[in-house]
Design a protein around this nucleic acid. Structure first.
Length: 430
RNA sequence: GGCGCUAUCGUCUAGUCUGGCCUAGGACGUCAGCUUCUCAAGCUGAAGACACGGGUUCAAAUCCCGUUAGCGCUACCA
């Protein structure tokens, strides 16, 4: 049975790159109906922090990557590594150096058979005697990795490209220990938008950061899967189920991919557009509360209407808050250019006053009725409908752009619309 | 420096293993048009790439060699 692992070290948050490594392991395990395991590489006692571990685990859960079996903690298995190292000393394959133990690197060429790259040869002349156990008794990465992968019966090691040079060292250790060597698949790194090494300079790199900014986990997973892998046909939007069905290691790219936010934004918009409004509402509530747009009590139906209006207009959940704040707060940010163009115009005041009067007499504030009345009034006043629509939009939302005016008015409600028109007539229109 | 990996539109990629179906396909982005009360969405269209130089071959994006560029590793970090 296929057994793979994701082995983060809790010395930082889960970022885009390591999340993609985890994803490829997870996808492969689920595709092969194998096991996806977690190993916490916390041998660096100084840099490892439990907050980081919590965040990494929360990130994996959020992305929907579930793991099988209890996570393995390297910090709890020092005895295992020590025993293995001592066995190697006894066999003359390692030696003491102070309190540390060093591996005696055999002098021979080492071949790595990589699934994504084929055969890679290394001259062991360049391979040094690696430290196995550090002076403080903890194992080094390359040693613990081998011991644990063997102990956890890992069949495929799927990890970042940056580990290619570690692989011959690890293979030498496998051989010295007499362990079966797993398959290796090295995946290309994800680069920053400019093609250079991914770094904090490039903005949000931790997964939780993307959650905060309003990206949907499925969109992020879809996007990540497409970095360095493709289904082989023209599909761009793939559900988790489809990804699992199509995922094979053979289709992983050799070339590193630059992280481009544009496509993520597009994908996220696609996922939002397809999302059930009620489900979207649940996702939006925390965002709106966080931004103090709604409190404990809120009108569920109104929110659902707003979602209907703005779901095609948002790329992230955070965008929604921007769009709808004007429906909840009387503090309107008037767009200067819009005011100048549509309100600071001779006749605007009279036009809006007539319109407001007509509206106040309406018994129904449904969008069809509103539109009918608007067009009729425009006709009577001998102006184009747009001549009435644009000033009204600026008057009630402060902006020149947004959802359809009549839908907007209906959701906003008669009182608020009239109050705002009144304010505009008195203070802004000429 | 040494060792290793990689090289297709601005970006993500298909095609490379198994040479001909590739005057290189799709997506994002950009631009234009349609639609329209604006924006968005949607639809239609356009521009846009085989890093360079040598081979091999009837035929090369595809195979080989070199150059260049980028990246990784070169720790008692992981």
């Amino acid at each position: 049975m296929v057994r793979v692992r994701f082995a983060p070290s809790p010395t930082g948050f889960l970022h885009i790159g390591s999340a993609r490594s985890a994803l490829f392991n997870w996808l492969f395990a689920r595709h092969e109906k194998g096991r996806f395991l977690l190993r916490i590489e916390d041998t660096d006692k100084v840099r490892s922090k439990s907050e980081f571990l919590d965040e990494i685990l929360a990130s994996l859960k959020w992305l929907g990557m579930d793991w099988d079996e209890e996570p393995v903690y390297q910090s709890k298995r020092e005895e295992l590594y020590k025993k293995a190292a001592e066995k190697l000393i006894k066999e003359g394959k390692a030696y003491k150096e102070g309190d540390a133990i060093r591996f005696r690197m055999p002098e021979k060429k080492i071949k790595v058979n990589d699934i994504t790259r084929g055969e890679i040869k290394f001259d062991s002349e360049v391979l040094k005697d690696e430290v196995l156990i550090k002076s403080d008794g903890s194992p080094t990465y390359n040693f613990a990795c081998v011991i644990d992968d063997a102990d956890m019966k890992i069949t495929h090691v799927i990890r970042g490209d940056d580990h290619i040079s570690n692989t011959p060292k690890q293979i030498a250790i496998y051989e010295a220990l007499g362990y079966a060597i797993p398959e290796f698949a090295h995946i290309p790194l994800i680069l920053g938008p400019d093609g250079s090494r991914m770094s904090k300079r490039h903005g949000a790199t931790s997964i939780m950061e993307y959650k905060k900014e309003g990206y949907l986990p499925d969109a992020l997973v879809n996007f990540l899967a497409l970095m360095g892998w493709s289904p082989g046909d023209d599909r761009e939007i793939l559900s988790k189920e489809e990804l699992i069905k199509e995922f094979t290691l053979e289709r992983i790219n050799k070339t590193s991919a630059a992280f481009g936010i544009d496509k993520l934004n597009w994908l996220n918009g696609q996922y939002i557009k397809e999302k059930d409004p009620k489900a979207l509402l649940e996702l939006l509530l925390p965002v709106l509360r966080d931004k103090k747009i709604i409190g404990k009590d809120f009108d569920r139906e109104k929110l659902l209407d707003l979602i209907e209006l703005y779901k095609v207009r948002m790329k992230t959940l955070a965008d929604f808050a921007e769009h709808v704040s004007v429906f909840y707060s009387d503090k309107i940010d008037f767009d200067e250019k819009g005011v100048k163009k549509h309100l600071k115009k001779k006749g605007a005041k009279k036009l809006l006053a007539t319109w407001a009067k007509r509206l106040s007499g309406l018994s129904s504030f449904k969008k069809d009725i509103l539109e009918e009345n608007c067009r009729k009034l425009a006709d009577e006043l001998n102006v184009k409908p747009s001549g009435l629509i644009h000033p009204t939009r600026v008057a009630i939302t402060g902006r020149t752009v947004g959802a359809g005016l009549f839908e907007t008015m209906e959701v906003m409600g008669k009182d608020m619309v009239l109050t705002r028109l009144d304010y505009t007539i008195k203070n802004l229109a000429l």
